[in-house]
Nucleic acid binder design. Structure first.
Lengths: 152, 152
DNA sequence: CTTTGTGCAAATTCTTTGCACCAAA
DNA sequence: TTTGGTGCAAAGAATTTGCACAAAG
């Protein structure tokens, strides 16, 4: 179960890399400078960034960073369950450092991806015949902001 | 609400284009030969095909068909709510002609995309601050087939 | 005859791969 | 000193775009 589960690691503030380093350790991930940077970015930017956005954000501080490494790192983080891979946006993959139970809402007007709080996702909804590793609840529509502006 | 809703249109058999033509009419879609072919394919192949799969399936019968038209048609069908756009598979978009309430399970081993029956998706789970047009419930893991074969 | 739809080719964009170099255990 | 990680350049693959022609109202 790598997502839609209530696990509240890292709820406390952690703006320094030492904590991120420890976080990676919990998931058995060797803490290279690049991996710490990517994980740290995801823990402190709950914007559901794309690989490109992460790369663009980190590149200034790490001139030698490559997109390949960002992609490699994200793949590893997702495989180990430290990060959630969001596929709601057909245009590109987004990533979420918050692995606690919540859904997502994509505004088709402005493209913003919002978190949707969820108490619990009824186990009754789970398919019984297959072994579920992760679950995602996605919504699309028009967000409050865009609804107001467009007066509809 | 274009998906995850219980609307049982077209439950009866319809293997002829006349019905598909009527179906398109219901959604205000002009029934060109190509659109009928794509919609008809989706109504009778519940395999959640990709654009390419649809193209490959129809091309033999329609040598002049182009991928562009398949993409255009799918975009239109989805926009009008006649077809659901599935984004669970990060590699490519899949499409579903069954717009009744159900979730999806993707097997990470064999890549098969299964339907997951759902009674009702609790309205309580819906975000209240935004206007929801569609909802999707996605599961990933190992399917029954692959679980057996791999004895795990 | 005016609007709408189709299809080819080329372009775009996200992501992956091959391979050489670097770094850590 | 062997394994694992990074990064560059190139390739790959899904999708989009521009534009000309065809079809429908």
């Amino acid at each position: 179960m790598q997502s839609l589960q209530s696990c509240n690691h890292y709820k406390k503030k952690m703006n320094a890399t030492p904590d991120t380093r420890a976080y990676l350790n919990e998931y058995g991930i060797r803490p290279s400078v690049q991996r710490i940077a990517v994980m740290n970015y995801l823990l402190h930017h709950r914007t559901h960034p794309t690989a490109e956005e992460i790369y663009q954000a980190l590149a200034p501080e790490m001139p030698t960073l490559s997109r390949t490494t960002v992609y490699n790192t994200l793949e590893l983080l997702v495989a180990r369950g430290a990060v959630i891979h969001l596929t709601i946006d057909p245009r590109f993959s987004r990533y979420d450092g918050d692995i606690s139970l919540h859904g997502h809402f994509l505004c088709d007007h402005c493209g913003t991806l919002y978190d949707v709080p969820l108490k619990t996702l009824p186990e009754a909804l789970y398919p019984k015949e297959h072994r579920v590793n992760s679950a995602q609840l996605y919504y699309r529509g028009t967000c409050a902001h865009c609804s107001q502006e467009n007066k509809q």
